[in-house]
Structures are given as C-alpha cells and as structure tokens.
Design a protein around this nucleic acid. Structure first.
Lengths: 205, 205, 205, 205
DNA sequence: CATGAATGAGTATTCATTCAT
DNA sequence: GATGAATGAATACTCATTCAT
C-alpha cells in the first residue's frame, strides 16, 4: 500500500524495459527489417499499443536500444583514452573492452551496421540519410577512440608513423572478426593480448 | 530454322543474363530484403513471369548471382594457392586479387554476409539452415585459400607458428575493411603492399 | 466541508465544461471521425479517463455537445415563432438569428450533418439508426420553425400557397450557404435583408 | 481464340470498373474515412492487391471516381451554357441537369464536399491542401456554370443586377437541398420548373 | 473523481508468387 | 518462353476504451 506508487512506477519502467529487452533479442536474431513489432510484443508480453506509448515507431525503438547500449560503452572507451597510461597498455585495455562489449552485442552491431546504416537512401520506406547518420556516429566514436590512442603512440614513438585512422579500422575489424568467429574462448584478457600482439608485431617471423 | 532456334537460345540466355545483371545492381543497392522483384524487372526490362521461368524464387535468383560471381573468383584464388611461389609473395598476390574483386563486389558481399547469412533459422519465411550453409561455403572457401598459404608459410618458417585460421580471418577482415572505407585509392598493388606489411610486421616500431 | 463540496462541484462542472469546449474546437476543426479523444484531452488539459467519467463514449460526448449547443438556439427560434409580429418580419428575424448562430457553429453543423447523420446504418462500429435520428431531430426543429412561419404567412395571404416545408428547406439552405461561403460580412441585419429579399421576391426583374 | 486478347482486355477493364463501381457504392454509403478498402474489395470481388494495381492509394481511387463522375456532367453543363438560348431557359435546363445528376450522385457529392474538401489540413493522415483543391475545383466549375448564365441574364436585363456569384450559390443550394430531401418525385422537368420559379420570382405574393 | 498506462481490433499498403493467355 | 494481371498473407501503426491506483 505504502509503495503502491512505487510499484506502479517500477511496473511502468518494467514495461518499457521489457519491450527494450525483447527488442534486443528479436532485432539481434532477425535483423531490423525482418523483426516485426508482433515478434517483439509476443516476447515482451505486452499489447501492441504499449510499444507505441513508449516509442514513436519501430525505428525509434531500435535507435533507443542502440543508444542505451552504446552510450555506456562509449563512456568506458573515453575513460580508457583519457587515462594516464602507456599507449600500448591502453591498446590492450581497449581491445579487452571491445571484446567484452561485442561478445554481448555482436549481433546487434551487425544489424546496426549492415541493415540500417549500410545502404544509401532508397525510397520512403527506408531510413533517411539523417537517420543513417545517427547510427554512423556511434561507429565513428568507437573507431575514434582507437585512432586517438594510436596517434598518441605515434607521438611517443612507440607506433610507426602512418595512417592512424586506417590502422584503427584494421584493429577494429580484427576485434569484430574475432568475436564473430568465436575466437574468444572465455578468457578475454588472453584474447586481447593475442590480438594486440598480432596487430602490433605482425605474423611474420 | 537453325537460326530461329539459335536466336531463341541466345535470346533466352540474354534474358537470363539481363535479369542477373539487374539483380546484381538492385541487390547491391538495396540489400536482399528491400530489393523487390519489381525493381529488378524494371531494370532488366522483362516481365515478372520471366524471372520465374529462369529462377525458382527470389532466394534462388540471389544465390545464383552469388555463385556465378564467386566461382570465377575462387578459381583465381585456387590458382594462386597452387602456384609455385614464395608464401609471402602469394600473400600479396592474394590480397591484390581480393582487393580487385571486392572493389567490384563489396556491396554484394555485404548483402550476402549480413542479410542472408548470420541470422539463425527463424520461421518458415526465412532461410533454412541449409540455405545459409550454401552462402557460408563461399566465405569459407575464400578464407581457406588464405589459411592454406599461411600454413605453407609456417611450414617454411617465414610465418610465426600460431592459429593460421584465425590469422586468415584477420587478414580477410583487414582487406574488407580497406575496401569499405575506401582506403584503396586506385593503386591496388600499392594498397596490397600496405596491408601485407601491416599484417606481416605490425604497427609497432 | 460545505466549501470543499462546493469546490469539488464547481471543479467537476469546470472539468466537464473544459472537455465540452475542447470537444467543440476539435470536432469543428477535424470532423467527428478524425477528431481523437487525445486531441480533445490535450486541449482540455485533462486526463483521458476523465472524459469517460462524464461521457459514455465519444459519440455521446459529441451528442451532448450538439444538444447543449442547439437547445438554446431552438428556444430562441421558438420565441420568435410565437411572438406577435408580421410573418415577413418574423422571417427576417429568424434569418438573422440563424445567421448569428451559424456564424458561430457552421463547422459543427457541417460535422453533424455530414459525418454523423446522413449515412445509413452500416455495421456495428457506425451509428445506429436511433442515434442518427437524435441528430435529425435538431435539424427538423430548425426547419420546423421556418415552416410554421411560412404557413402563417400563407394563411395571412402574404406568402404564395405552396409547399411550405419545401420552401423552408430552401430558405435554410440559402442561409447555410451564405455562411459557408462568407457572404455575411459582419453586418448580419443587412445580410438577413438580402437573403429575405431574394427568398421573397426572387432574382428576376 | 480470336478474341482472346479482346477478352483479356475486357476483363482487365472490367476489374478496374468493378472496383470503381464498388468504390462508388461503399464511399457513398459510408463516406471516405469510414469506407475501408476491405469493404470495397468484398463488393468488387477482387483481391486487395488488385486495387493497388489500378490505383495508387485510397485517395487516388476516390479522386478517380469523382473525376470520372464529374467530367461528363461538367461537359453537359458547359454545353448548356454555350448554347444559343434565352438565359431563363438555360437556367431551367441547368437545374434539370443538376437534378438528374445529383439524384444519382448526391451521396458521393456529400462525401466529397464534407469529408474530403471540408476541413483544413490537419496532420499527415489527412488530405494535403493540394488534394483538397482538386475537389474544390469541381465544385467551382458547377457553380461557375450557373454564375455565367446569371451574368448573361443581368446583361440582357432579365435578372436583377446584384451579386451573381452569391445568387448562383443560392440556386445551387436549393437544388441540392431538393435532392437530399426527396422533393424531386420522378418528374425532373416539373421539379426544375418549381425551383426555377421560386428562385426567379420568390415566395411572396 | 482524476488519471494515464495498457490494450487489441482495425486500417492502408506492400510484394513474392501464380497462372491464364 | 514471355508476359503481367490477380492475389492475399504479412506489417507498421492508430485510437477508443478500460481499469488499477
């Protein structure tokens, strides 16, 4: 009785959260276009209208999911970048953070990058260029974190001078590939070290 | 009579080819799910029924396109692998071949990898696991070519011992990333060399 | 205590009135079917449930609005009809009253006549014939007032014998048309005179 | 066999025509907003997709119906206006034409005027101002025909000088009111004469 | 009484596929 | 073989109404 208001609040929160969690599962499984709102409400155990009480439309639901997933991760990245540590250490720390994040969110990232962001504007039923840019920005932020560390390394003379942005993309691609192909077997630190070694020193003897 | 049969044959071939070429453009532009058969026939300048004379359905049309695109490329890869050359040379040659192929087919690859493959079986309207495997096979073939060269290099002592398959995936990911982010500026050989250098010797000083 | 009951009462009245006033604006602007309860509560600044405390449903809210709008007007009409004046004077007075009423309520009348009334019974989600009749009654009352005056005029020999009901409808249609097409420019008495002249003496020389 | 092409053609025409005829019935019965595409296809005995083969969307289906209904009527009006006859004769001829047209199309006119044209632009689900104008134009054309005859009458001195446009609207409103309230009992010429008499000479003795 | 979160039936529209010609 | 009209299952989104607090 005393916490009846609280209860309602927490239930409200829970509805929104239920929907977001169901959306995460469904979008990750089926991708953006093949996921249906019906799939999501079936999993979230809510009515269809409820989705539209909390979210403007399917796209905004998806973007909310992306944002609420990425923002904490990006904050973590920024923290590492701004720390006072050796660049080579930072690289390994960043790889580990990426690995742990993408082990959770690999499929969602795939959907974001390749279904939503991936194609130009074609027709009114697709995303507008502005909408695409929102998603793009999260990708750019992640890569940017790596780039900044590499530039720091170049300045300090521990990384070869060269195209830091290109190298950052390469490192990112190695990380994502490792996740998708299950090269990360539980031990994240170990995997991060392997990736860092290869990235830093190459595969040649 | 002879001519008319020939003519009909060549016209058939041409219709089929027209459709495949239109399909390549449309699928690359819009992705698998958002590409419509109407888009394709409009570009191919044929009737809708004609598509179904040559192809069982949309999925089989797409797969045919993939197959006819990949098989020649895979043959090229195999040729390099089987050649009598230094493994490090082979690596660079393979990178160059990948680059030239993906500069043409990057979008199509993206569509294949991220819209068709990669999502588990969910419901009758999606691809069956068997269908997914068909697409996987082409990816495996490409990676396999790199892996075999790396193993050769390890045997000959020019590549560090280690997980060749993992390394092959990493090299592949670097190549694809280079293409998608336009790091390849016309000069394929030069780009191949840059990628090979980084892959072989790393970015650290 | 007395005050609090009073206060509650006046607040109730006020809530009900707020909703009715908002409903008048929204129904007039958007029509019955396209007006939403959300529109109305947004303008009335109340909760959605409150509407259903005072009104059974959307239709009954609309009908209440109509009734509370028409009843005072109809009383005014009746007063003119029952007055002891020349029929030709009454006609002009009635026209003026109509004009001033419809200058305020033209859109609402349009909504009543053409969205709610006028379509036969079709399906359970539409109005029942009984509901339609309620709306018809108000229209009939207005026309009836004119008819009674015309009949009086015929009896007194100042109006041609003929179908008084028909003529009443025609006069009514002229009045409404004048309002909708903004032929009434501020000066209601002048406009009423013009309409009366045309109705009484025609346009021919 | 010979007329197989013809048969297909006539069947195609018939599908489109079936849909238009069903649309006329449903829109007239239910109005624009409450008529559903499902209603229409049920009556037309076609699939839902077929509607969208012939018409862009619901609005364009409705407008096509309006256009194909009004254009022949407007041509008839124009013919009367341009004829070499006395203005007073023309007025009666025009009234008769209006009556016979609206006896068929009264409900459709109501829908056009009061559901489609009647309200300003409010929100994306309603008609755009441009779309409203299309419908407006047909109304203007009808009224314009009457206006031109009245002006002719004024010039020839058989109609009182005055606001011809206003008078045209009044005559129009009398005609429509006659139709809606079933004052036209079969004999169109007789009804036209009654309306013309009242309009020209008034109801006063 | 006042509230507003939850609901689900209802709606316009799309698009892969079929089949008669 | 070539065609394209016909089809209907599937889908995002709306909105009147209910009911627990």
């Amino acid at each position: 009785m005393v916490n009846s208001t609280e209860a309602r609040h927490s239930e409200q929160k829970s509805k929104r959260q239920q929907i977001l969690e169901a959306a995460r599962v469904i979008f990750s499984q089926k991708g953006y276009y093949r996921a249906t709102v019906d799939d999501i409400i079936a999993l979230a155990d809510t009515g269809k209208g409820t989705v539209y009480n909390y979210f403007l439309n399917k796209e905004q639901l998806f973007y909310t999911l992306i944002k609420e997933t990425y923002v904490p991760f990006e904050n973590g990245l920024d923290k590492i970048c701004q720390a006072e540590r050796e660049p080579l250490d930072k690289i390994q720390a960043v790889i580990a953070l990426f690995l742990s994040f993408y082990l959770e969110n690999a499929q969602l990232w795939r959907v974001m990058m390749h279904e939503v962001r991936g194609f130009g504007y074609n027709g009114p039923q697709s995303l507008t260029p502005e909408q695409c840019d929102k998603y793009q920005a999260h990708f750019a932020h992640s890569i940017g974190a790596i780039t900044s560390i590499l530039k720091e390394g170049i300045q300090q003379g521990v990384i070869k001078a060269g195209n830091a942005d290109q190298a950052a993309h390469w490192l990112f691609s190695m990380i994502v590939m490792s996740v998708f192909h299950k090269f990360v077997n539980g031990n994240i630190e170990q995997s991060a070290k392997t990736i860092a070694d290869t990235f830093l020193y190459g595969v040649a003897k």
